[in-house]
Design a protein around this nucleic acid. Sequence first.
DNA 1: CCCAAAGGCTAATGACTATTAGCCTCAAGC
DNA 2: GCTTGAGGCTAATAGTCATTAGCCTTTGGG
Lengths: 190, 190
Amino acid sequence: MSRSDDIRAAALELFTRQGYEATTMADIGAAVGIRGPSLYKHVASKQDLLAQIMTTTMEELLALHRTAVAGSDDPTERLRRATEAHVRYHARHRLEAFVGNREIRGLVEPHRARILALRAEYENHFRELVNAGIAAGRFHVTSARLASFAILDLGMGVSAWYSEDGELSEDAVVWQYSDFTLRLVGATEL
Amino acid sequence: MSRSDDIRAAALELFTRQGYEATTMADIGAAVGIRGPSLYKHVASKQDLLAQIMTTTMEELLALHRTAVAGSDDPTERLRRATEAHVRYHARHRLEAFVGNREIRGLVEPHRARILALRAEYENHFRELVNAGIAAGRFHVTSARLASFAILDLGMGVSAWYSEDGELSEDAVVWQYSDFTLRLVGATEL
DNA sequence: CCCAAAGGCTAATGACTATTAGCCTCAAGC
DNA sequence: GCTTGAGGCTAATAGTCATTAGCCTTTGGG
């Protein structure tokens, strides 16, 4: 349904620019050329709009992570691929990622708990990748927890400043940031 | 004036936990044991409360940065000290830093423009530190802009997850993250 | 051609909110 | 002892908002 998609897209952009609380149904309606109340012919509620955006985002991120990591057994290569997927998603879907990171407070139960669980799972995957590298003697960091937080935060930063028509291409950012990650964990060359 | 300080502290915590928009004057009042309207005997407005928090935060951050950097001429040492100050501030004043990063949208002109200018200045300082290291042949990165973004984002991440009673001490986080930064820019040993 | 449903609209509902007005109390200095 | 100002309070003001109700138009399938 094209209209519903338009509405979700408009909501996404407004949530990014103004925040969930500060965005009114009338704003979203105006962005697609209708009045606020007419939105209810297409969506259940404002909260539902946010929940759908955040759920889709976290599920896509987890799916991409699994795919990225599946192709290799080498700890360095696995972390590199996971970081590439992470950063690429945050550049390519910067609005979704931005809202996904910043509007958790706007979610009401049970959505909030579900999203937090998915986030925790995602974070754990990264921590395990770092731990695997340490166990194999390939990474050299004091705290795997700190290193994985740092890696995740780098991606989130991307969603805050990346712009498709900026001077840096998506690939340039992805490759640079993957390098940063491997340097950060002190990955030794093979 | 102790009461005004209490109010600012209560507002800071509520803005962190619920966000500026979602926090009501009645909430802030309740946190200090009075009713919403009574707050106006101590503060000008809710907006003023936010503006004061953000302005103070950015000014402190800039002042600490200047002090940190002043003590050395060596590019590596300067970047290390700047990162230490950056991360330490984000750990020690995590509420201020958190709100400072996330509630810019809630600011109204002319506060918004002023804060954005201070942030831009802060970002520039880091980019210049990285550029200085590159020029001296001590750092090895493709894009100084990307590297400085990464460094700044690391600090912001800290303000999102750091906890004083967590397993990691402030010093541990500061030192680890400073290491991360120097690794990230490919700083060569002297 | 008809008519039902899809998708608009305006008006109403029921909250909630920042801020102001106006009043009351109480303590400290005279 | 009085009074004045600081700092509370409640009630009123003037919004804003999500959501629902009820109505109208269009349109596409029979």
